[in-house]
Design a protein around this nucleic acid. Structure first.
Length: 591
DNA sequence: ATGTAGACTTAGAAACTTTACG
DNA sequence: CGTAAAGTTTCTAAGTCTACAT
C-alpha cells in the first residue's frame, strides 16, 4: 500500500504545508486504513474520548467466623480493617517474600496502623502470629474458583470487558489495557526493595481523576461517591489516573497496544531508529574522536555512549536513594561495577561489568574494548571509592541533550531499538537456510530473536520444572528414534517382500511404509529442534524484545519472503499490536 | 545546572487457558 | 478423560524522557 506523503512527514516529524493547514482539525483522509488517517499536531492526542471509567476492586468480604487468626496460640479476633490487611499477608504465606526481614518489618508496621488500640496493645510480635487457617481458607477458595464452570467465568469476564473494556477515541472503539483498578495488597518490589511488604492501599472514587472529552457521556462514579476530578485534557492519552501510596507516583489507565494511538507511537519509534541507522556511522566516528577530547566531561560522555551503543545498556537515570532497589544503568554506573584487566584470557583491555539493572536483573559481561576506552576508564576510576560514580561529569539529561543535537529525536534508548532491530535483520539473513523446512526456519528465527534478547540482557528465572520437562522431551526423542528404526525395518522387509511377490498389493505396502518412515523422521526432527530451542532458551526471555525492540516489519518481511505464515511468529494479540506492520510491510522491507 | 511531576514505555512474574499426551 | 506442559494474558513495577519550576 502506498502511504501518503503527508503521513510519512507526520511520522518523521517533518513539518510540511499540509500539516500546518490542517492544524487542529480532525480530517480523515481515507477510511480504508486507520494507519492512514490524519494525525493531529501540537501534541493533541484526540478530539473525542468517551469511556465508562474504571472497575474498582471488589469490597473486602470479612472471613467466615470459623476461620481464625491465632496470636500466641489464642484467638484474639480482628477488626475488619486489621483482618483485611492480615489476609494480604496470609495470601502470600507460601511466597519467599514473607520470610524476608524487610518485608516482615514493613508489613507489620503498616498492619499495626490499621489496628484498633486494643489490637495494637495485644499484637506486638509478628513471629507469634499464625495465619495458616486463613491461608488454607484462601487456598480452598481458589480451588473452588477453579472448579467453577468455564462458561460461568467467561460470561462474567466478558460482561465486564464489554461494559468497561472499551472506549471511543475519535472514530474508533478501542480496547482499554488495564481498566481494573489495582486491588489493595502488600507491595511486592523487585530485588532488594526497601519498601517491600508495605500496605498498598485501596483506591476509592475520590482518588480518581477521570479524563474524557467535554462532549462525551462522562463516566459516573459509584452511587454515593464522587470523583476527585473530571478533566478534559486532550494532550494526554490516559483515561483515568490516581496517585499510588508507596512511591507517590501516578498510575494510569491507558489503551491497549492494538489501539491507533499506541500503534502509531510504536511505528514512530521504529522510524526514529531507522533514521539513526542513516547517521550512526557519523555518530560513531564522532564519539571515537571525543575519547581524545581535552575535556573530561566530553570523554565521559563519549565512553558512556560507546557502552550504550556497543552493549545496549540503558541510559541510567539517577534514583532517590533508599526509595527503591539499588540498580543502575549506563550513566549511573559506579566504580564498583567495573573491573579492568589489561590482559585477560589472551585478550587485551578487557572490562568486566557486574551490576544490577532494571528489575534487579544482573548484567554480567566481560568485553574487550579499545585501548583509548580502557585508558579513559582507568582515568575515570582513579582516586575514587567503590561507590563513587564512574561518570561523575555526566547524567542522562546531559547525554540526551547531546544526542538531540546529533539527530532530531535521538535519545539513549533509540540505540537499544536500533541495535536490536538491526541485529535481528542481520541474524535472519545469516541464519535462514533456503533448503530447510518450516520448523527449522522457525528455529532460525528464534535464534535470531535470541541473539537480540542476549544483547538486551532479557533474562528470566529458569522455569521451575525446566530439568524435568527437558528430561521428558529426551525420553520422547528416544521413543521416536526407536519407532523410526522399527519403521525402517518394516520398510526393508516390505521391500524384500515386494521384490519376491511383485504384486500390486505388496508394492502399495512399500509405499505406505515409506510414507510412515518419512512421517516419523519429520516428527523426530521436530522434537529435536524443539529440544535445542528449549535448551538454548533456558534463561532467556524472548518476549520483551519481540514486543518492544524488534521492528515487526522485519519479521513480517521475513515471513513473506520464506512463505512462513505470520501466525507462526506472532500470536493473535501480537498480530493485533502489529497490525500496522502486517498491513504495510512487503517481502523486501529493509529496516 | 538541578530538581520534580507527569506521561509513557519496558519488564518479568504470576495467573489463567489451551493443547498435547498417555 | 485427566494431567502436565506450553502458550497466552494479566498484572503492575521499574524504567526513560520531557516539561517546567527554581
Amino acid at each position: 500500500k502506498t502511504i501518503s506523503n503527508h503521513l510519512v512527514s507526520c511520522i518523521l516529524n517533518i513539518p510540511n504545508a499540509t500539516n500546518k493547514k490542517n492544524e487542529g482539525l480532525s480530517v480523515i483522509l481515507r477510511a480504508d486504513s486507520r494507519w492512514e488517517e490524519e494525525r493531529y499536531t501540537d501534541g493533541v492526542k484526540w478530539k473525542f474520548l468517551e469511556h465508562k471509567g474504571p472497575v474498582f476492586a471488589p469490597p473486602y468480604e470479612p472471613l467466615p467466623s470459623k476461620v481464625n487468626f491465632y496470636y500466641d496460640g489464642k484467638k484474639p479476633g480482628l477488626s475488619p480493617e486489621a483482618e483485611e490487611v492480615a489476609t494480604f499477608f496470609a495470601k502470600m504465606l507460601d511466597h519467599e517474600y514473607t520470610t524476608k526481614d524487610i518485608f516482615r518489618k514493613n508489613f507489620f508496621k503498616d498492619w499495626r496502623k490499621e489496628m484498633t488500640s486494643e489490637e495494637k496493645a495485644k499484637i506486638t510480635d509478628l513471629k507469634k502470629c499464625n495465619f495458616s487457617e486463613m491461608s488454607d481458607y484462601f487456598k480452598a477458595q481458589s480451588e473452588a474458583r477453579k472448579a467453577m464452570s468455564k462458561e460461568e467465568k467467561l460470561v462474567k469476564n466478558e460482561r465486564l470487558l464489554q461494559e468497561y473494556g472499551f472506549c471511543i477515541m475519535d472514530n474508533h472503539r478501542e480496547r482499554i489495557a488495564n481498566f481494573r483498578i489495582e486491588p489493595p495488597g502488600l507491595f511486592r518490589g523487585r530485588g532488594d526493595h526497601p519498601k517491600m511488604g508495605m500496605l498498598k492501599r485501596r483506591i476509592r472514587p475520590k482518588d480518581i481523576i477521570v479524563n474524557c472529552s467535554k462532549d462525551s457521556k462522562h463516566p459516573q462514579p459509584p452511587p454515593g461517591t464522587k470523583w476527585k476530578e473530571v478533566r478534559h485534557d486532550n494532550k494526554v492519552t490516559w483515561l483515568v489516573s490516581w496517585t499510588e501510596n508507596i512511591q507517590g507516583s501516578i498510575k494510569y489507565i491507558m489503551l491497549n497496544p492494538s489501539s491507533r494511538i499506541k500503534g502509531e507511537k510504536d511505528w514512530q519509534k521504529y522510524e526514529t531508529a531507522r533514521r539513526l541507522k542513516k547517521c550512526v556511522d557519523r555518530i560513531r566516528t564522532q564519539y571515537r574522536d571525543d575519547w581524545k577530547s581535552k575535556e573530561m566531561r566530553i570523554r565521559q560522555r563519549a565512553v558512556a555512549l560507546y557502552f550504550i551503543d556497543k552493549l545496549a545498556l540503558r541510559a541510567g537515570n539517577e534514583k532517590e536513594e533508599g526509595e527503591t532497589a539499588d540498580t543502575v544503568g549506563c550513566c549511573s554506573l559506579r566504580v564498583e561495577h567495573l573491573k579492568l584487566y589489561p590482559e585477560n584470557d589472551g585478550q587485551e583491555y578487557v572490562v568486566e561489568f557486574d551490576f544490577l539493572g532494571k528489575d534487579s536483573i544482573r548484567y554480567y559481561n566481560k568485553v574487550p574494548v579499545e585501548k583509548r576506552v580502557f585508558k579513559n576508564l582507568q582515568l575515570f576510576m582513579e582516586n575514587k571509592e567503590p561507590d563513587d560514580d564512574l561518570f561523575d561529569r555526566l547524567n542522562t539529561s546531559i547525554l540526551n541533550k547531546h544526542l538531540q543535537e546529533l539527530m532530531d529525536g535521538l535519545t539513549a534508548k533509540v540505540f537499544r531499538t536500533y541495535n536490536a532491530s538491526i541485529t535481528l535483520q542481520q541474524q535472519l539473513k545469516e541464519l535462514t537456510n533456503v533448503d530447510e523446512n518450516v520448523p527449522a526456519k522457525i528455529l532460525s528465527y528464534n535464534r535470531a530473536n535470541r541473539a537480540v534478547a542476549i544483547l538486551c540482557n532479557h533474562q528470566r528465572a529458569p522455569p521451575k520444572t525446566f530439568e524435568k520437562s527437558m528430561q521428558n522431551l529426551q525420553t520422547k526423542i528416544e521413543a521416536k528414534r526407536d519407532q523410526l528404526s522399527d519403521a525402517k525395518r518394516e520398510l526393508k522387509s516390505a521391500k524384500a517382500d515386494a521384490k519376491v511377490r511383485k504384486d500390486e498389493k505388496s508394492k502399495k505396502a512399500v509405499e505406505t511404509k515409506k510414507k510412515a518412515v518419512q512421517r516419523i523422521e519429520e516428527q523426530l526432527m521436530k522434537l529435536e529442534v524443539q529440544a535445542t530451542d528449549r535448551e538454548e532458551n533456558k534463561q532467556i526471555a524472548l518476549g520483551t524484545s519481540k514486543l518492544n525492540y524488534l521492528d515487526p516489519r522485519i519479521s513480517v518481511a521475513w515471513c513473506k519472503k520464506w512463505g512462513i505464515p505470520v501466525e507462526k511468529i506472532y500470536n493473535k494479540t501480537q498480530r493485533e499490536k502489529f497490525a500496522w506492520a502486517i498491513d504495510m510491510a512487503d517481502e523486501d522491507f529493509e529496516f
